[in-house]
């Protein structure tokens, strides 16, 4: 296909409870870095990453969001126009898994995708590197949930050990591409809001 040389931009939103490792996953994926230190994300921020998918150059715009409620006050307007949503939980916290439902619901309401039933989600169970005894959510339980929500692809990752992170985001990217009508993908995208977010160590600004 001749148009495959054209640039594609995908907007991917990462959601989940505070501390499940959203920022860490994104940093691992984009910058191949991990820090043990926790710094709550305030508002939202994005990093971009270019990937080749089936010999198309795709720019992924990864939006990291605040899990803590008090930092979400900046609004969730950026949900709109999302191409894929990555739901993250911590396999060592049952609560972080149980809230996936409402993250998903809230996302659907705020993003109002055209085809909500088939909107591409990806679920990531993070922090599998922690000792087995701490694990609170079994793979089976997670998979059952994913199946009940329309066969959402499921990945178990460790941002710390860089396990499966690449695969998770790759799936997000592919699903988004598959889902979006070609026409939409190739239409011109407005320039993304520019914030100096390309250095993950810098303070996160609000982009709303």
């Amino acid at each position: 296909m001749s148009s495959s040389r054209r640039k594609v931009l995908l907007k991917v939103i990462i959601l989940g409870d505070s501390g499940v490792g959203k920022t860490s996953l994104m940093n691992q994926y984009v910058n191949k870095r991990f820090s043990n230190q926790y710094k709550a994300t305030i508002g939202a921020d994005f990093l971009t990453k270019e990937v080749m998918v089936d010999d198309r150059l795709v720019t992924m715009q990864l939006w990291d969001t605040a899990g803590q409620e008090r930092f979400q006050s900046l609004g969730v307007a950026f949900y709109r126009g999302a191409d894929c949503c990555v739901l993250v939980y911590d396999v060592n916290s049952a609560k972080s898994f149980e809230t996936l439902d409402s993250w998903r619901d809230e996302f659907l309401i705020q993003a109002s995708p055209r085809d909500p039933e088939n909107f591409p989600f990806v679920v990531i169970g993070n922090k599998i590197d922690m000792e087995e005894g701490k694990r609170m959510v079994s793979q089976k339980r997670a998979m059952t949930w994913c199946q009940s929500k329309g066969n959402i692809p499921y990945f178990e990752t460790s941002a710390k050990e860089a396990i499966n992170v690449e695969q998770g985001f790759q799936a997000a990217c592919k699903n988004a591409l598959q889902q979006e009508g070609e026409a939409d993908i190739y239409s011109d995208y407005p320039d993304a809001i520019k914030i100096n977010s390309h250095d993950a160590d810098q303070g996160y600004g609000c982009a709303c």
Partner: peptide, 20 residues
Amino acid sequence: ALFKAYLATKPVMVGPLCRI
């Protein structure tokens, strides 16, 4: 109103709205 708008045009969204 959001509820009704969903019901009229995107019924699948009613579920999420009712749950949150």
